[in-house]
């Protein structure tokens, strides 16, 4: 078991290093001279030279990469060109919690609604209900989330005036108001995952219910509820967790768009504004954070396998 965890950790660290190299290269490829950008249009030769030295840009690329990586690990992510504010504070302390709250609420909503719908669909296979759910979930996976967000704003925000259409209230400061502000964004972001979960649960549950041990359980006279939720769902958990882990990238991607629709000050807004203002360090921080998050969650998924399916327990 320890060996298994160790190997997974080593793999993860390796991929993290690769992601850091990709992010670092991206920054180096960016057009424009960061020193010039920090100094503005008028500066002396000495100021240029001293800032170049201060930013470490006169050293070799490998040394620069090492410095940058060490800074990233220790929370020194540099300062933005304009305003000279620390990026770590802005990206990690302020923006990331917003995105995580949005992503977590959306995922929660998607599982809460998606799993029962999928089970119902599988249990009532080939009925009108099943066909309706199938059509809805196909639409759900294909529908552009940002357009859905605007539709929801129009219907629930403008027409019925039920929910606020913009802004973020931290649920850890004011829980009810936070949930209130998060409802429409979470619903927007969750649709794709809800639809995907429905399809996945349905397909896997139908397959699981054809297995001999399910027939055996039914023959023993176990209730249908017990057959589905205990014998069936146990086999759906694994693919479900795998796909959710793999789809985390899509979740973050959707969060970027949802934040734009609802003006939430998260990582997506941060990266978008940074691109428009040519703040490459902020773009890089955003890319690194997204990559690390994705890799970290997939590590958790990998580590969860033996626990979800005892057959996979390494000996």
């Amino acid at each position: 078991m320890l060996l298994f965890v160790g190997r997974k950790l080593a793999q993860t660290i390796f991929i993290l290093l690769m992601v850091s190299i990709v992010s670092f290269t991206l920054l180096k490829l960016a057009p424009g001279d960061p020193v010039q950008m920090a100094l503005g249009s008028e500066y002396s030769q000495e100021a240029y030279a001293s800032l170049t030295h201060e930013m470490g840009l006169d050293q070799s690329l490998v040394v620069q990469y090492g410095h940058w990586l060490w800074g990233f690990i220790t929370g020194d992510w540099g300062r933005s060109y304009v305003g000279r504010t620390p990026i770590f504070q802005y990206a990690f302390v302020e923006a990331l919690p917003v995105t995580l709250t949005l992503a977590a609420s959306a995922l929660f909503l998607a599982i809460l609604i998606g799993v029962p719908l999928g089970v119902l669909s599988a249990a009532r296979q080939d009925t009108i209900l099943d066909a309706g759910t199938a059509a809805l979930s196909l639409t759900g996976t294909a529908f552009p989330s940002f357009y859905l967000g605007i539709l929801l704003i129009w219907i629930f925000g403008v027409h019925f005036g039920l929910f606020p259409t913009m802004g973020f209230v931290a649920p850890w400061q004011d829980f009810l108001d936070g949930v209130y502000h998060m409802t429409l964004p979470a619903l927007t972001l969750s649709t794709y995952f809800m639809a995907m979960i429905v399809r996945l649960v349905r397909a896997n549950l139908i397959e699981a219910l054809q297995q001999p041990y399910v027939a055996a359980a039914r023959a023993r006279g176990e209730s249908e509820r017990r057959v589905i939720w205990l014998h069936g769902m146990r086999n759906v958990l694994m693919p479900l967790v795998t796909v959710l882990g793999l789809q985390l990238g899509a979740l973050l991607q959707g969060a970027v768009l949802t934040e734009t629709v609802f003006s939430l000050p998260g990582v997506g807004q941060m990266i978008t504004n940074a691109v428009l203002n040519r703040e490459y360090l902020v773009v890089q921080a955003g890319v690194m954070m997204t990559g690390c998050l994705f890799i970290f969650v997939n590590l958790l998924v990998d580590l969860a396998y033996p626990w979800l399916d005892p057959r996979l327990k390494p000996r």
Partner: peptide
Amino acid sequence: MRIVDAILALPSLVMAIAFIAILG
């Protein structure tokens, strides 16, 4: 394949945003 792994760790939209940052 390790480079591809690293690139796949980033969602395609975030990747595209990073490229747009460089390309314009």
